[in-house]
Design a protein around this nucleic acid. Sequence first.
DNA 1: CAGAATCCAATAGGATACTG
DNA 2: CAGTATCCTATTGGATTCTG
Lengths: 146, 146
Amino acid sequence: MVTRLPGDNLRTAQEGLTACFQGWSGSDFDPALCPVRGVLDRLGDKWTTLIVIALAAGPRRFSALRREIPDISKRMLAQTLRDLERDGLISREVFPTKPPSVEYRLTGLGESLLEPLNALIAWAQASQPDIAAARHAYDAAAAVEG
Amino acid sequence: MVTRLPGDNLRTAQEGLTACFQGWSGSDFDPALCPVRGVLDRLGDKWTTLIVIALAAGPRRFSALRREIPDISKRMLAQTLRDLERDGLISREVFPTKPPSVEYRLTGLGESLLEPLNALIAWAQASQPDIAAARHAYDAAAAVEG
DNA sequence: CAGAATCCAATAGGATACTG
DNA sequence: CAGTATCCTATTGGATTCTG
């Protein structure tokens, strides 16, 4: 175990991101092929992360998810679940009851997303006051200069 | 320093996300007020993360960013930079040369995003083969059943 | 060079109604 | 219950033109 200085994690992250970035920022590279974009586009849509977080607590049925994410429409819930299943992040199990019930749960791959996602959420929560303050200051400055 | 078992980080992430989730999944809570959604919506747009990653390597000028992200339009670059500045993640410095040049750099708050972002990118890169395989399997299965 | 403004196309996503 | 299908609106974002 090495001793870690305060700026150490930051430098590691800088280097990792820079190395990654240089791999696909070359002008003759097709941006559509960049795997990072593909994955982040998914995570970036309106509902994916919410559903993953909801499923982090355990398996859920379709209507249970609807209750936990009150403002999602049936359409988008069904579609996002399908996309997540297609990407192998969640699995779908149909119980042939009557009426039928369907249970969704994270796969191992889906669970592996929880750690980096948790880090990001923690950052969002910790930074939210700073961001709000910055926005307020920016808007106030913009207002005085017309 | 405690010993860490293999599943330990996962459990920590599960608990953290679940606790966070329960805070705002209550049905009488206005989803628009959820700070996590606000922040993740920003990170989820098409260009924000790309720009942050580009700036992780150091300050950049407007046209340098355009070269490094070849498929961004002037409009979206300007708009995304403005939003990032408003949120306090980057700072903007104008040099009164002629013609003018403007330099953007990450603030301390912006740098603090690099670590969680790096974790997510690393996950995306590591998981990309699994995701591609899952998609292929899903599509193949969907094809046979009509 | 670094934008702002305008216009327009593509997509995301909500509401509703219908099905097994 | 767990979806699908259709329609429609709002937002995103590209192309182009104009300015200091």
